[in-house]
Design a protein around this nucleic acid. Sequence first.
DNA 1: AGGATGTGTAACCATGTGGTTGTGTATTAG
DNA 2: CTAATACACAACCACATGGTTACACATCCT
Lengths: 111, 111
Amino acid sequence: MVTHPPDADLNRVFRALADTTRRDILRRTVRGEVSISRLADDYSMSFAAVQKHVSVLEAAGLVAKTSAGRERLVRALPDRLALVRSCLQQLEALWVHRLDQLDAVLSSPQE
Amino acid sequence: MVTHPPDADLNRVFRALADTTRRDILRRTVRGEVSISRLADDYSMSFAAVQKHVSVLEAAGLVAKTSAGRERLVRALPDRLALVRSCLQQLEALWVHRLDQLDAVLSSPQE
DNA sequence: AGGATGTGTAACCATGTGGTTGTGTATTAG
DNA sequence: CTAATACACAACCACATGGTTACACATCCT
């Protein structure tokens, strides 16, 4: 069970997505760049907490920050979602394969 | 920020997927029912640890257990993955929308 | 210059997580 | 019946996580 590097990445991405606030931040930064304090305005938690959420998303590669004067603009990055999609697709492919096998068993003559 | 019940579900599902061992268990139980001890044979951790992983997957609705004599057979459930897919799809739809807006801006005459 | 705003960082706390061991209880095998 | 197997459950531990507050620093505004 050597955990491939991509495995660790996948863990971080799923982990980052497993929080309502972070998913919301992601939705908001998909539409365009938003500063951290403007993000923080809409949540009932401290600025530092929102900052932490952003840094979790950043560590997962789901978001990037760019400096603009005294504020940091957060924008969502689409690339890492492909990782998740491929993981799910792989799982669902196995399901399809199982169903195929079931079909084969049901439609083949008894042994 | 009233977290809808589905939000909590989504959190649990993503959280459950954010672990290499659990994703592996999921892959193995997609193909067909596997007992917990047979699952545990292939990981370098205690039986109880694997049991916990299974129960996390179960709480997330990704897996179900059925009694068969003294063993519990674990099988993967496909339904909850649809939740994840729709969440990602929604996010990516927002991205597409942003790109559309960008295109519109770029192709429209200056103001 | 000086104050307001935006951010980064550190310390701290409660709780959750991933792992362990130990014990109890069914169920199967001899 | 007894022993081994498969599981459930609880207690425990180290560490991560999500939150807080406090403080330092940079940047903008007047």
